[in-house]
Design a protein around this nucleic acid. Structure first.
Ligand code: MN
Ligand code: MN
Ligand code: MN
Ligand code: MN
Lengths: 222, 222
DNA sequence: TAAATATTTTAGGCAAATCTAAATTATTTA
DNA sequence: TAAATAATTTAGATTTGCCTAAAATATTTA
């Protein structure tokens, strides 16, 4: 059920992520995500169907098989563990690691990834707050909500970011907000939908709606 | 001068290593090293010639261009740094790392390898004792000799091994010999060409000619 | 040096992954 | 519901990397 090419793995992962966001995924969705053409996607869908990782009926749609999902989770696991390594051990910024992890996720050694996991202390979340599947493909999901949906007076910890852009990282670094930072909503201004928040006892300031939309929080401990 | 495929990189590295061992390299040599066929090698030689990494004239021979050598040293650098990482940080045995490094050496990020180098403490030699080229492609060569060529009474440190087999590793582990271990030649037996050696003050024993041939030593400090 | 042998290259073909353009099928809209 | 539009698939090419068999060239040997 293995011996998949890097290209096939990238398709499987793309379909997995698209399915997470919206259970019905189209040929065009995949083409857009992978910067390729619909005709190329159709070719690949037929191959993935033959390889049993996809259930595909032409013109009717497709979805990952159980085996396909297992494969996808394995790639996601590798991607996120490598991202964690790059940020924690090699001092990369979270905005720099995605492209590198996109290559590292295809290194095939099974034992390598298990040892890397141990070396890193078996992290449960990557630098963007996304959960790292365990070796069985189990994902520890956090009950997280968008910061704009949190009621006034409540406190929760930043658990994930909705974007990996350099611009967001720059802003968060400047405001000393990171994954794990506790945030309390102090006030909401309806004029521009900005929010007044408190991070530590002495840190109280206003953030834009755009920024709040890019932050997810949870009351669970990370 | 970049955008080389993994396959092209593997050919360049193979030609580099073959040139190190013997300055004239044949099509068949490359085919043997890469487990492929002479006709495939010829195809690739033409492509590498077009890409300026190889000087090639049909039926007359070929050799890496300066640019080709630069590329080769970059791949060797990545290969050996990753091997060092696998052994030092992830507790792999030296006999397990080659295949994994064979994949990792093709990860493209320039900054990744520089940060990895720093993270590892800028090692000069890989787990097999082979020198790691610096970021400019400079190699720190040690004046090393084969253990069988060392005179009686002299002491030197193990600097490299001539094989990466599990069998050799098992034997060296059992005899407590590693890269850096000082060895003194005590006696040579002409009957079977075995050698009596001393490692630490209280460790004195005989090794076979086969084992001695697999060990290289240097008087310089590692 | 001429024949035998070995090496290298060419010819022709195949599979993976991609593309554009055209055809087919599904969905929307009037 | 029929036409228009959108989505998907097919047809036919291209590039990379590889193969086998045959041809060309180089080297060795008698
Ligand atoms: Mn990828
Ligand atoms: Mn991530
Ligand atoms: Mn390789
Ligand atoms: Mn090595």
């Amino acid at each position: 059920m293995d011996n998949l090419s890097t290209t096939e793995e990238n398709y499987i992962k793309a379909i997995y992520h698209l399915q997470q966001a919206d259970s019905t995924v189209s040929t065009n969705d995949v083409a857009a995500k992978l910067n390729t053409k619909a005709a190329s996607v159709t070719d690949m869908l037929k191959r993935l169907n033959t390889k049993q990782v996809l259930n595909y009926e032409k013109y009717r749609g497709f979805s990952l098989s159980d085996e396909g999902e297992r494969v996808a989770l394995g790639i996601v696991r590798k991607h996120r563990l490598w991202e964690f390594f790059l940020v924690e051990k090699l001092q990369f910024g979270w905005d720099e690691v995605h492209a590198i992890a996109e290559e590292l996720e295809h290194i095939t050694s099974k034992v390598l990834i298990e040892r890397l996991d141990n070396f890193l202390g078996n992290p449960k979340f990557d630098p963007h707050g996304d959960p790292i599947p365990d070796s069985n493909g189990k994902i520890q999901t956090l009950p997280q909500i968008n910061l704009v949906d949190m009621p006034i007076g409540e406190t929760a910890k930043v658990s994930a970011v909705g974007s990996q852009s350099t611009e967001l990282l720059e802003l968060l670094t400047h405001k000393k907000i990171a994954i794990g930072t506790p945030i309390t909503i102090k006030k909401k201004f309806s004029f521009d939908n900005s929010l007044e928040i408190e991070t530590y006892s002495d840190q109280r300031f206003t953030i834009s709606r755009e920024l709040a939309l890019a932050l997810f929080v949870t009351k669970q401990q990370l």
